[in-house]
Design a protein around this nucleic acid. Sequence first.
RNA 1: GGAGAGGUGGCCGAGUGGUCGAAGGCGCAGCACUGGAAAUGCUGUAUAGGGGUAACUCUAUCGAGGGUUCGAAUCCCUCCCUCUCCGCCA
Length: 429
Amino acid sequence: MLDQRLLRENPDLIATQLARRGISLDLGELQQLAQQARDLGEQRSGLQAEGNRIGKEVGSLIKGGAAQGGPEVAALRDQGNRIKQQVAALEEEEKGLEARLQEQLLGLPNLPSALAPEGRSEAENVEVKRWGEPRLPGPGESLEEHWQIAERLALVDTERSVRIAQSRFVTLLGDGARLERALIAFMLDLHGRRGYTEVLPPILVNTASLTGSGQLPKFAEESFRCDSDDLWLTPTAEVPLTSLHRDEVIAADQLPLRYCAYTPCFRREAGSYGRDTRGLIRLHQFNKVELYWFSRPEDSEAAHEQLTRDAEAVLEALALPYRRIELCTGDLGFSAARTYDLEVWLAGAGTYREISSCSTCGDFQARRASIRCKEGKGTRLLHTLNGSGLAIGRTMAALLEHGQQGDGSVRLPAALVPYFGRDRLTPEA
RNA sequence: GGAGAGGUGGCCGAGUGGUCGAAGGCGCAGCACUGGAAAUGCUGUAUAGGGGUAACUCUAUCGAGGGUUCGAAUCCCUCCCUCUCCGCCA
C-alpha cells in the first residue's frame, strides 16, 4: 500500500512512478477523497473535544454539589446530546469515505524502485548474468523434456491425479516422491547453514494475511478459498511469513530477520488454460521453499542482492545452469519494487525457465501488514523481501532434463546423494 | 462440540461510571553518587492520526464491534482469542 502522506504531499511522484509500470491513473479522485476524509476527521475531532469538555464540566458541577437534575446540568446534558448526534453523523460519513479510500489504495501496486530498469513488458527485462554451461543436444542426440522422462521412469502419474483431484495436479510416485522430499530437505538444510531460521507455517491463511502481503483484494480469483471459514489456501509462503510479524514493532538491532519455509503452494492459475499443460511446470498445487527477510530500510538493497545470491546458491550447488534477469518496470509484480528472476536452463525444452523470483517490496507490505522497526525514538516501517529458494517441481524438471543419459537414466548432482541415497534414476528402479 | 476462567502499556499487575493514557512494580534510557562498577536516589519512558517552525496541542486506542450515559478500562449485547476440565481426534 502506498503512503497516504505521499499522496497528499507529492501526488505527481506517485503518478510518474506508476506510469513507469505502464499505469496511467488520475489521482484527482483519490486525492479528493483523502482530503474530504481528512477535513471530516478534523471537524469530528473538534466536536469530540467539545463533548469531552462538557462531560468534564458536568462531572465537576456534580462534585461541587449541583443537583443531578439541576438547570445547569440539564443544559449541558442537552448540549452533549446534540454534539453526540453530530459526531455520529460525521463518523458515519467519514467511515464511508475511509472505506472507499482504503479500497482504492489497497488496489494500487507498489512504486518501482529507482533502480528498476524502464520497460513495458517482459521483452524489455534485462539479463544480468549467466552461470554454468547450458546443455545442448550432441550430434544426433535428442533431449527429452522432463515430463517425458518423468513418465518413462514412472516418477509421476498425471492421469490418476485427475481422478483424485483435477487437471493441473500431479501425483509423485516412488523415486519421484522421494526426490521431491530430498530436494525440500536439501534446500532447507542449505539455507539453514546460511543463517536462515526454518519455519513451517500454516498453509491456510486468513484474509488479513493475504491483504498484508498484497494478494488481496486485487487477486482474489487467483487463490483457493475455504468459503465457510475466512481461510484461504496459501499461494506462496510469502503470505504466512509476512504475517509472522504482522502488527509488530521489532527492535532494529534484531534485524535482519531471515526465514526460510517449505510449503505447498496453491494457485488457481486462472486464465492460463492451455499453457504448460504437461509436466511439473504449472500446477494448482506445487511445493516451494521460500526465503524471506525483514530488513532495516537502509539495508534492503544489499539484502536483495544477498537474498538473490542465497537462491542462486541452490542452483549452483545442484550444478544447474541459470541466468539472472532483472525485471523491467512494466513486468514487476504487484508488491515488488524491484525483482530479479532466476531462470534455470531446461535442456530438453531448450529454454531458460523461471525458477525463482527475488523481490524487494520496500515498505509496501510492511505498511499493509503494519510491521515496524524501532531504533531510538519513534518507529518506522521496515522493509520486506522475498524469493523462492527454490520452486521444487521446476527444480526437479531441470534436474531430469539436465541429467538425462543416453541409456535412459538420469544422473543426479553429488550434493543430492546424501538426501536421495543414489546418484542416478534408472528405468528399472 | 460441552462446562468454567480470563484478555489492561515492552513485561507483571491495580483500577469505586467523572481530570484515567491509566496506580505500583519490573525492564529500559538519562543524570547523581563511584577510581570503575554493583547497590541506591532522582528524572524520563505507549502507539496512530490531525494542527503548529517549535514548545506544544487536539482526537482515538485498556481483545474487536455495537449499545446505555452529559461522561465507560469500569455497565449491557455480540463476536474473536487464550487458559483449565470433559468429549472427539492424527
